[in-house]
Each structure stands twice: as C-alpha cells, then as structure tokens.
C-alpha cells in the first residue's frame, strides 16, 4: 500500500517536506513538535518530500504496492536512495 514513513527520531522539524508538498498531505501537530501525515488520499507520489528532506527521514513507500511496481522507474528517482 501507499504509505509515508517518517523516522521521528531523525526529524528536526524543519518543515521542508510540508513546504514541498503540493497537497495538504503533511503537517505539524498544534504544538509543532511532531510531523504528521494528515491526508494520504491527496498524495500525488511526486516524492518532493523525500527529495527535500535534509535528514533523509522520509520515505514514500509505494514500491511494494502492486499497482505501481512497474512504475518504479517512471516516478522520479531520489538520488542516493534505493529504488
């Protein structure tokens, strides 16, 4: 399934992922202490959040998703990340 995995231990709450998302998928909680996935239905799988994360703590996991297996190469590759 489609999933955005966040490594909260490494996240430094810079917000680059939120800013790079074209949809309101990601956001902080009220106290701005934790990154949350708000609405995965709106995700376009553009992988902007993965690319812009300076701490490398986000993964848009769609690889195991059956419908998209053949599309791994078509969606933008993230430099230095296993596909």
């Amino acid at each position: 399934m489609l999933e955005i995995q966040i490594d909260h231990a490494r996240c430094n709450l810079c917000g680059h992922c939120i800013d790079s998302c074209p949809a309101p998928c990601l956001g902080f909680d009220e106290a701005e202490t934790k990154l949350e996935v708000f609405d995965l239905d709106l995700c376009l799988i553009c992988r902007n959040c993965e690319i812009h994360c300076p701490k490398d703590c986000l993964v848009v996991d769609f690889v195991e998703w059956e419908a998209t297996r053949e599309f791994r190469g078509m969606v933008r590759r993230v430099p230095g990340r296993r596909q």
Binding site: L44, I45, A67, T68, E70, F71, M74, V75
Partner: peptide
C-alpha cells in the same frame, strides 16, 4: 502514452 499509464496506475490508487 506515459501520462495516461501513470495517471491510471499510480494516481488512481488501483
């Protein structure tokens, strides 16, 4: 074409 394949398979979530 690529666009319709992508739209159909990825953005339509199955």
């Amino acid at each position: 074409d690529f666009a319709s394949q992508y739209a159909r398979k990825v953005l339509l979530r199955g």
